[in-house]
């Protein structure tokens, strides 16, 4: 690390301790910080380390407020009041996530009922429990991720990107470990029909998910499209898991996993397309 004057500057453990102390203060809200006390060793370090002392003072110093032009503020207020109507607050992320899970289950279960359970009979208990756990956990994670993305200012326990990566990793590992690797026979022919069937199931379910998501599009982004596409694709992949009689790892990874991937990519593309259509023109 080099200082501004080119002199080497080292961050001692004591300096890092100051950063941790600051975490302690900044974990509290502004009014609670007034009663916050720095530890004695940290105070002693501040007395001897000018760099830390300067940083501490800089962080504590107030910043002069900016006042926007009065006409601008009035114009904004007038514009908002023109379309002011009572609204019902959106449900909590937990309730929203439960709605997503419900759609997932209500869509998959009847489909499995209609298309038969050939795949179920091909799996042993370990495979069934393993893949079911991955599918349910992924659906739960994506449901919460979508719910958090719909609610500005909510605390994301798992970032949306991580939720998608967890789904992909879980499916990849579970399939690779639990299912046999066999010589592919009619790989393209069978696989293509599975991919088509999976996407045909994902499409209507994505519409249902869209109906739920549309109220929380404030922070809509490509990631929201990806999450929506992934959960819709997961519906297709889950139904295929129970209805398809080809339960070998290659087929599952390429074609059943392909349903999720294609659906996710379509979700991103559609969300960007819609966003660019709605974008204000210069």
């Amino acid at each position: 690390m080099q200082s501004g004057a080119g002199m080497p500057v080292t961050m001692s453990d004591e300096c890092r301790q100051i950063d941790l102390e600051l975490d302690g203060a900044l974990s509290q809200n502004a009014s609670e910080r007034l009663t916050w006390k720095m530890s004695e060793p940290a105070l002693a370090h501040l007395r001897k380390c000018e760099r830390c002392r300067r940083l501490y003072h800089w962080l504590l110093d107030g910043v002069a407020p900016t006042h926007p032009a009065l006409e601008l503020v009035e114009a904004v207020g007038t514009r908002m009041k023109k379309s002011l109507a009572p609204v019902t607050p959106q449900s909590s992320p937990r309730v929203l996530a439960a709605h997503f899970l419900l759609v997932f289950l209500l869509f998959s279960a009847p489909m499995i009922g209609m298309m038969g359970t050939a795949g179920l009979h091909e799996m042993n208990l370990t495979q069934l429990v393993g893949i079911l756990t991955v599918l349910i956990c992924s659906a739960g994670l994506l449901s919460f991720s979508l719910a958090w993305q719909m609610s500005p200012g909510s605390l994301h326990r798992v970032p949306p990107r991580i939720a998608v990566i967890a789904l992909a990793t879980g499916f990849l590992v579970a399939t690779a470990v639990l299912f046999p690797w066999q010589e592919p026979q009619s790989f393209l022919e069978h696989g293509w029909s599975c991919l088509k069937a999976g996407l045909l199931m994902a499409a209507p379910s994505s519409l249902l998910f869209w109906v739920l998501v549309r109220r929380g599009l404030t922070l809509a982004s490509g990631m929201m499209g990806a999450s929506l596409g992934a959960i819709a694709g997961l519906v297709g992949a889950s139904v295929l898991q129970f209805t398809c009689n080809r339960q070998d790892a290659t087929h599952l990874l390429v074609w059943h996993g392909g349903v999720v991937i294609v659906s996710l990519v379509l979700g991103v593309a559609i969300s960007w397309g819609v966003k660019s259509l709605l974008r204000p023109r210069a």
Partner: peptide, 23 residues
């Protein structure tokens, strides 16, 4: 739309840089 851990990490990196600038 982040986690508390990620924010702490960004803040710590910023503190390091600010120390250099103040120095």
């Amino acid at each position: 739309s982040s986690t508390v851990g990620a924010i702490k990490q960004k803040a710590h990196r910023a503190y390091e840089k600010l120390r250099l600038v103040l120095e």
